[in-house]
Design a protein around this nucleic acid. Sequence first.
DNA 1: GCTTGACCTGGAGTGCGCTCCAGGTTGAAA
DNA 2: TTTCAACCTGGAGCGCACTCCAGGTCAAGC
Lengths: 120, 120
Amino acid sequence: MYAPSEAARRSGFSLDTLRYYEKIGLLSDVSRTSGGRRVFTDDDLGWLVLFRCLRDTGMPIAQMCRYADLAREGEHTAGERKALLEEHATRVEEQMRLLQHQYDHLREKIRFYEGLADAA
Amino acid sequence: MYAPSEAARRSGFSLDTLRYYEKIGLLSDVSRTSGGRRVFTDDDLGWLVLFRCLRDTGMPIAQMCRYADLAREGEHTAGERKALLEEHATRVEEQMRLLQHQYDHLREKIRFYEGLADAA
DNA sequence: GCTTGACCTGGAGTGCGCTCCAGGTTGAAA
DNA sequence: TTTCAACCTGGAGCGCACTCCAGGTCAAGC
C-alpha cells in the first residue's frame, strides 16, 4: 500500500501523470481511502514499472492501453499480449541500431573538431 | 544542386520540414532559382545529414539552432560547438544505457509469456 | 481546535515538432 | 501552346503526452 507521492517516487511518474493514466483507463480503478485518497497496491506498482519500461522504449500510450485492456480481458489474451510485446521489442532493436549508428556519426564529428584543435 | 524533392529524399526530411527548418533559421537562406524555387547545395545537404543525426539522437531543435548559429559566427566558436556536441554525446550514451536496460526488462517479460506457453 | 501540507476533481493550457491548407506560380514535357 | 506536377507563401491546425490551475477536502501533529 503506497500513498500517491510514494507511488510517484517509486515509479518515476509525476502525480499528475499517475492521475492522467488513471483517467484515460491505462491504470484501472485505483482504490481509495474512505476520504477519497488513492492507495496504490504492489500490483499497481508492478503495472507502473511495466509502463515505465514501455514508455522509456518509446511505446505510444495508445498501445499500452491496448495491452492493459487485453490483460483485463483475461488469460486467453496472453498470446496476443506476447505478440504485442514482441513486435515492440523488434522496433526497439531497430531503434537501438539507429541510435548506435547516429552515435558513431556524432563521435566522428567530434573527432573532426579534435583534429582542428591539434592543427591549431 | 538538388531540387526540394531530391533534398527531401536524400535527407529523410519532408518538404514541409525543410521549409520549416528554413523558416526558423536552422537552415540559413537556401538559394533560389529565378522563379523562386529552392535549390539545395551539397553544403545544405551536409547540414541536413547532421540535423538528421542530431534529431535521431534526440537533440531538441533549439539546441540545433544554437549549434547552427555558432557555426555561422565563424571559426572562433569551434570550441563551443565541440563542447555542445560532447555534452549531447554524453546524454546519448545515457539514453543508450537506459534503452538497453529497459530492452532487457522487456525481453524478460516476453520470456515470462514463453514460460506460460510451455506450461499450457 | 487549528494549522498545514498532501491530496482531490474537472477542465484548461502547454511545448514540441511538425503537417496541412488555400490560393497562386513555375517550367518541362507532349 | 497547353497541361500538370512540382513548387511557392503565410498561416492555421494537429497529435502527443503531459502539466497546471482553481477551488476545495482530508488528516496528522502541535
